[in-house]
Write a protein that binds this DNA or RNA. Structure first.
Lengths: 349, 349
DNA sequence: ATCGCCCATGAAAACGTTTACATTCCGCCC
DNA sequence: GGGCGGAATGTAAACGTTTTCATGGGCGAT
């Protein structure tokens, strides 16, 4: 990593200041000198030392993403969206994940400090107090899917409430009298919002039917257990809405093993629209979340916050989501439409 | 970000040198002073300025991962493995992706320069010449799934050849006379290796049967087309081995629509063991690749290369993979075994 | 008791940039 | 022709660390 700005300056017979100016596109440098310097820099394969640069500019051109996990389609897709937007702005992306608990998240947060110009945080262990304790006010931050309301943080959420409500209303609208819910983990914000959406839809459109809620924890196994639970009851509901797709898949499995036909005997719907949703039998009706868009928008908001620290950006915003009707809810218009849009499988390359 | 090492030094009534020593755990500082300094640093919420630090240490404690894409299970899983190993060593992870072509990859490579202590590269656009031109010799690099043989690079590959060969041999061993291949894209290294594995197995165990190879490009759509292609022939082969799972899924779809029963009329197998594989009907026999392990090992190798620059590490290594037998090849021992180990779906948190 | 020696601590240089400020040079106007 | 103004260029300080080298003090050995 030997070649520095000094070497370029010596070779070009100018001062380091001129080299710096030429490289950074400042105005006061002759076109002639500029091109000479640029040429020399290129031929020397000069690359500015980013640490030295950010030491003085106090900018790292990097944004940090703090996630609880990296496993699964959701995070993969989210990172993709973030990366897309970041790279369009010439920003680097520092990811940090696998935070089993709050203290791990705290240390990750601290470790990122000074390495990034802003942060994107998506973590169940993060609440307002946690942020106050571990994050200096000064660093621009955008929270994703977070219940945090207070503080100087921009919050960006998926509209879980509206999505769940729309789905339950769809199920009721196509004639299913009663809809049961397989809930998500108790402490989970998304799960809470989805449950509220379910309750709202039931109250609005099926006021006479008491809500039925079976516990779950977002895993396929818990969906399977919930399916068994339902089967054990004296009366099966006409439809089940699982708070996420994986539980819906587990539930389908339980029904299949018991010989209960979906959607004829019971309709099933999920939430998330993970890739698997369209491959299960029957294909799963679910709520589609444009995850990459979530990441993209969040990054754009973060960039805005970085560039306009005092700019009173909107503090909160939500991303809407759409009901995707497939076979499992029994309302598909065309009976056996061929699978649409084969997924482009990212491959070992 | 105001508080610097000077503030800590002043508060603790010592020199900055002592603070630095205390914080970095150097030997020659009294236990008493050390704890005092540490206490003050903590109470001041001092965080070392990483740019200043790496300016002088020439270490960034960051490794860069250059990937062609971030979409899909494969890369998600790979990053997860890398992150896991990196975080265990206190290293940060800088990801860069979406490189449609070689020039994009080159600029990404350059942009990472100086920001990372080492690089993990997985890209179809990267060959030996490209590396020589864009990567300074000095930066430790590990190549993943790369055909590059020459140069001072450590290469870490999935054993595609052995995996494909084992799968084809399995298909032949359970009595399928002839096996056709749905190939991957021509320029793809993995695809080439898998095709060679197929040819080797055929030559060894079915010498009298001429290999049948249908073109494909790793997409579901191309698998579907390959399926139609097979159906149009006067004689269907007894088994098809698709060079990846997505093509196998597309092929299954074509067979299902044509009413051709799998595995009774024709057996199908894939490669990769993506999550969808166990959810399609019938569940797909495939070759399992421990992707996270690939990432983990690659990172460990990279760390070794960073710490022992001259250490003559093994230059090349492969990660073996395993045949996973499910229903689609017609050789499953227990007829209708329930799905094992429901996947823990990473969830919106 | 005196001399050394070792260990804890301090002073200052160095890392490679950017940028405020100083300087130089050139052409133009009076 | 000389001074002046403005643009181009140079000088040097500053960013916050780490580390080398110097210094001082305490303690053991003679």
């Amino acid at each position: 990593m030997g070649v520095t700005i000094r070497d370029v300056a010596r070779e070009a017979r100018v001062s380091v200041a001129s080299v710096s100016r030429a490289l950074n596109g400042h105005a006061n440098v002759t076109e002639q000198t500029r091109s000479r310097i640029l040429g020399i820099a290129a031929s020397l394969r000069y690359v500015p030392h980013s640490a030295a640069r950010s030491l003085i500019t106090r900018r790292t051109q990097t944004i940090g993403a703090l996630l609880p996990e990296l496993y699964g389609e959701f995070f993969s897709e989210l990172i993709r969206g973030i990366d897309l937007a970041a790279r369009a702005r010439g920003l680097h992306l520092l990811v940090s994940s696998s935070h089993g608990d709050a203290s791990e998240a705290a240390s990750a947060l601290r470790a990122m400090q000074g390495r990034v110009d802003g942060m994107l945080i998506l973590s169940p262990h993060v609440d307002a107090d946690f942020l106050r304790a571990n994050l200096p006010e000064s660093i621009p931050t955008v929270l994703l899917n977070s219940p945090v309301q207070s503080g100087p943080y921009t919050v960006f959420n998926v509209d879980n409430f509206a999505g769940a409500r729309a789905m339950v209303q769809h199920l009721l609208a196509i004639g299913h009298r009663d809809v049961a819910l397989i809930a998500g983990p108790a402490g989970n914000f998304d799960a809470q919002q989805r449950e509220l959406g379910y309750r709202a839809a039931m109250a609005e459109s099926a006021a006479s039917v008491p809500p039925v809620i079976i516990p779950g924890d977002f895993t396929e196994a818990s969906g399977y257990r919930a399916g068994l639970d339902l089967l054990a009851r004296k009366q099966l509901p006409r439809a089940v809405f699982a708070a996420n797709d994986m539980m819906a898949v587990g539930c389908l499995q339980a029904f299949a093993e018991a010989g209960v036909r979906v959607p004829d005997a019971i309709a099933v719907a999920g939430f998330d629209d993970i890739p698997i949703a369209r491959y299960v039998e029957p294909a799963l009706t679910t709520v589609h979340v444009r995850i990459a868009d979530l990441g993209r928008h969040a990054l754009m908001r973060l960039v805005a916050a970085i560039e306009q620290p005092q700019g009173e950006n909107t503090r909160e915003e939500t991303l809407d989501c759409q009901v995707v009707v497939r076979a499992s809810c029994g309302a598909e218009t065309s009976k056996s439409a061929p699978r649409k849009s084969p997924i482009q499988q990212a491959q070992i390359q």
